[in-house]
Design a protein around this nucleic acid. Structure first.
Length: 853
RNA sequence: GCGAAAGUGGCGGAAUUGGCAGACGCACCAGACUUAGGAUCUGGCGGGGAAACCCGUGGGGGUUCGAGUCCCCCCUUUCGCACCA
């Protein structure tokens, strides 16, 4: 063989991912119907969705992992005959585009669209099977016009309103944030930037109208991780209790005004020994009107609260307060209680005022001890021993397992009953009522930024707030806006946008110049995928009826209370608008783990970033994809190791050579397409058994826990097993231990099992094998339980629980046989050393344990 | 502080229900082929020991014929919540 010939041969034998992937990439580019979902269709549907990315410029490994999981699942479902909807889009409004525009002097639209083009090319190169005919780009008018349309519907229903209030302001973003976007008092985008409070007039969506339903329906979401459900439950923070009015008394002014407290424990009200106000409580201003010294002390409390918020540990600061010298009257017993202002009372929860019951509340107890306020026991614990009922508990005693004492007419009631009766009592006498408070607040959606959906509202001097008529939608976001100007929203500096005509009176009107929070875009985008080009409506209900619910949603857990609660809210409103009939959008949610390297999140500053482009160039897309699935199970954190990708690349090369050179070296050989004979040699039979066991394992991984790492390990085992077959190296049929039909079956099923994980290589080998049809529509292989079954098994023999020997017995061997073989075993006899058998534990097919004395 | 998840070789990780701990891969060691090897193949690879054996799944106790798996206490890590009245 000349050197030239050798080179040619070695090139063919080598797994060359660049050659293979480029070839298929080009073919797939030419056929945009490959991954198109059928709609309408009578076939069973499967809607699998990964969270759409923000087009930041390039994909990172977290994206690759997320989309590899979804793509693998989508391909598996296709091969199982489902009509799969697997779309992709771009969450493309948002602040980074504006920042980039300022830095690079590129308009946000241009920057964004360029990033989209780049990331879309990366996705295609990675072989992700998306139905691009349904692509959704939220920053384009054909999408955001429906944000505006929805906004008008919300407004008609009273679900969108404008109010002036204290709002979260991020100085770096130069805009308002929703409560959900504030993390530990800081901006979710700028973790070191403390959010300020500003008084602004803003648009809000009434998500609190749905608080109860959002909470209740969490119980229905059985396909969601419990972790996410707990986070949403906490965020909604429902708390049932009562409001009670305390009349203000005292020497000066404001007589007759009241302080309303919120309590969940009205049953302890006879134990109240003070009233505590948040330092920002409005009535505090009256109380301090003539007392500069007191005012100064209260300002100090406010400063302490702010400090605590900065530290991020609100619970850890010392409780501290000041006595105002005034008192309030307990409406149940007429008692005069001193009014204090304290740093542990929060203005943004309940009413910002509480009754302090030291005997039955941790915090009140701590505070009362510090300031020597009286502690009055009003609940006695129930004891299982009736003789001991009246033993005083250690304080504070905070549970509901007790009965009332020192509580006038309510003495003797148990706590639960007392809460009901005392609430009614307060209602009947007009000084209180049952109420429910939530931690969830209405969703503030105004943003003082340019790159977002314009809010379709007008301000007319004569008619006030006027919605833009539906026929005038979309309100187009103007181009060529100078976004560097300060003072108000960027759009307020654009006269041709700002100035409009009032549709009611025809007079001049001003447009709203704030834009919408981008979480609106992602709250309903997955409905748009079902009908992406509809220009009459956001979507057609027919399509929703077929495609919804989304069968599987896959993304990071960081959106547990942002995107995922807004999306649920949006669906419920759409249902009440009659647009959809489902109560929830997502049947199942899967949150994949983060990708880290060297123990830390990949980041430029740490220099530990691995980019998809480099991985593709070095190993190919298949290796990068398979590695992200093999390194660990999808729900866990993935610790990236470059050597690991190397190992996967070697595995794919081994598989390539096995199929290409050893299993189907000659497709014309006689009997190639014949059925697999039943009289296989023991070696061939063992390999056939391994094949069926592998099909079983991989199939079960898809149906169960999605532990694709073990699926891929199973494929490796299969490849190793076949490679170890005697004579497999020989390129001539006569010397093969494995008959041609078995080799064909092995190759075929191996390729099918590989197809969801490594689509490029699978397609290449499918063609090598001479198969014509679309691999994505080829049926998933079925295992034959009879062929998967072992006919001889190894049984460990233990003596007193310690392994002493192993027996090789036929699979169905009866107990007596196994017992005798075990007792006759040489190693066992030696280990028993003539001792007496006390007991023999025999687990059929599993083990023998001989207990000796 | 409260709640959840996790802790297994040098590393990533297997071990669906209590039944042979360490599958699979990486790294490493030895060998083969080779002008060469960062290619490929073969073998080895938890610790101790010459071996028989002994020890070993964060630590301590328990249940069981048998525990990585179940129960109790403790430690560590990650995540969530955190004066929510």
């Amino acid at each position: 063989m000349s050197p030239d010939e050798k080179d040619v041969a070695s090139r063919d034998e080598r797994y060359d991912p660049q050659r293979i992937e480029t070839k298929w990439f080009e073919r797939w580019q030419q056929d945009d119907s490959l991954y198109r979902a059928e709609s309408p269709s009578t076939r069973p549907k499967y809607y699998v969705l990964e969270m759409l990315p923000y087009p930041s410029g390039a994909l990172h490994m977290g994206h690759v992992r997320n989309y590899a999981i979804g793509d693998t699942l989508a391909r598996y479902m296709w091969m199982n005959g489902y009509n799969v909807l697997h779309p992709m889009g771009w969450d493309s409004f948002g602040l980074p585009a504006e920042n980039a525009a300022i830095q690079n002097n590129t308009p946000p639209r241009e920057w964004t669209l360029r990033n989209i083009a780049n990331m879309k090319a990366q996705m295609k190169r990675l072989g992700f099977a998306y139905d691009w005919s349904r692509e959704v780009t939220t920053c384009l008018p054909d999408y955001y016009r429906w944000n505006q349309w929805f906004f008008l519907k919300f407004y008609e229903k009273g679900l969108a309103y404008r109010k002036k209030s204290k709002v979260n302001w991020c100085p770096k973003c130069a805009t308002v944030l929703a409560n959900e976007q504030v993390v530990n008092g800081c901006c979710w985008r700028h973790e070191d930037t403390l959010v300020e409070q500003r008084e602004l007039e803003q648009w809000f969506l009434r998500i609190t109208n749905y608080a109860d339903e959002l909470l209740r329906d969490l119980d229905k979401l059985e396909g969601w991780p419990e972790k996410v459900r707990v986070m949403q439950r906490n965020w909604i923070g429902r708390s049932a209790g009562a409001l009670v009015d305390f009349q203000l008394g005292g020497a000066a002014g404001a007589a007759g005004s009241t302080i309303t407290v919120f309590t969940t424990r009205i049953d302890t009200i006879y134990g109240a020994t003070s009233v505590q106000l948040a330092p920002q409580h409005p009535i505090v201003a009256d109380l301090t009107a003539n007392d500069a010294a007191l005012r100064a002390k209260i300002d100090q409390l406010i400063a302490e609260q702010r400090k605590a918020r900065e530290i991020g540990d609100i619970g850890a600061i010392e409780k501290h307060g000041v006595n105002t010298g005034r008192y309030a009257v307990n409406p149940f017993n007429g008692e005069k209680l001193p009014i204090w202002v304290a740093n542990y009372i929060l203005m943004d929860y309940g009413t910002g005022a509480i009754m302090s019951v030291p005997a039955h509340d941790e915090r009140d107890y701590e505070f009362a001890k510090k300031y020597k306020l009286p502690v009055r026991l009003v609940i006695m614990p129930l004891s299982s021993n009736p003789e001991e009922t009246m033993v005083e508990p250690p304080l504070p005693f905070t549970t509901l397992d007790g009965i009332l004492v020192n509580s006038g007419p309510f003495n003797g009631l148990d706590c639960e009953e007392a809460i009901k009766k005392m609430t009614s009592h307060a209602e009947e006498h007009g000084f209180g009522k049952a109420t429910v408070t939530y931690r969830l607040k209405d969703w503030g959606i105004s943003r003082q930024r340019y790159w977002g959906t314009p809010i379709p509202m007008l301000y007319c001097d004569k008619d006030g707030i006027v919605p833009v008529p539906e026929k005038d939608l979309p309100i187009i976001l103007p181009e060529n806006v100078d976004i560097t100007l300060t003072g108000g929203s960027p759009l307020s500096h654009v006269p041709e946008f700002l100035n409009a005509i009032c549709p009611k009176c025809g007079g001049p009107a001003r447009r709203e110049t704030d834009t919408m929070d981008t979480f609106i875009d992602s709250s309903w985008y997955f409905y748009r995928y079902t009908d992406a080009h509809n220009d009459k409506a956001p979507f057609d209900g027919k399509n929703i009826a077929y495609w919804f619910l989304i069968d599987q949603y896959i993304g990071g857990v960081e959106h547990a209370i942002l995107h995922l609660i807004y999306s649920r809210f949006w669906t419920k409103v759409m249902r009440d608008l009659g647009l959809v009939s489902n109560d929830e959008p997502l049947q199942r949610l899967f949150t994949q783990g983060m990708v880290i390297k060297d123990g830390a999140k990949m980041s430029k500053s740490l220099g530990n970033v691995v980019t998809p482009d480099v991985m593709i160039a070095r190993y190919g897309a298949d290796s990068a994809r398979v590695y992200t699935l093999f390194a660990t199970s999808p729900d866990r954190e993935l610790d990236w190791q470059d050597e690991g990708v190397e190992g996967i690349s070697r595995f794919l090369a081994r598989l390539f050579r096995l199929v290409n050179l050893k299993l189907c070296f000659n497709k014309d050989e006689p009997g190639w397409k014949a059925p697999v004979p039943t009289d296989l040699s023991p070696t061939a039979r063992a390999i056939q058994r391994k094949l069926h066991q592998t099909i079983k394992r991989v199939t079960q991984d898809f149906q169960g826990r999605w532990h694709f790492n073990t699926s891929i390990a199973a494929l490796m085992e299969l490849v190793n097993t076949i490679n170890a077959a005697p004579g497999i190296e020989q390129g001539t049929p006569g010397e093969q231990e494995l008959p041609a039909p078995l080799r064909r079956e092995l190759a075929r099923d191996l390729i099918l099992l590989l197809a969801p994980f490594a689509p490029y290589l699978a397609h290449e080998l499918w063609e090598t094998l001479g198969e014509k049809g679309n691999l994505l529509r080829a049926p998933w292989p079925k295992y034959d339980p009879a062929l998967a079954k072992e006919d001889e098994i190894e049984i460990p023999v233990q003596i007193n629980g310690k392994l002493r020997s192993r027996l090789l017995v036929p699979a169905g061997a009866n107990e007596e046989f196994v017992r005798e073989r075990a007792l006759a075993d040489e190693k066992v006899r030696a280990a028993m050393n003539g001792k007496q058998v006390a007991k023999i534990i025999l687990v059929p097919g599993k083990l023998v344990n001989i207990v000796i004395r």
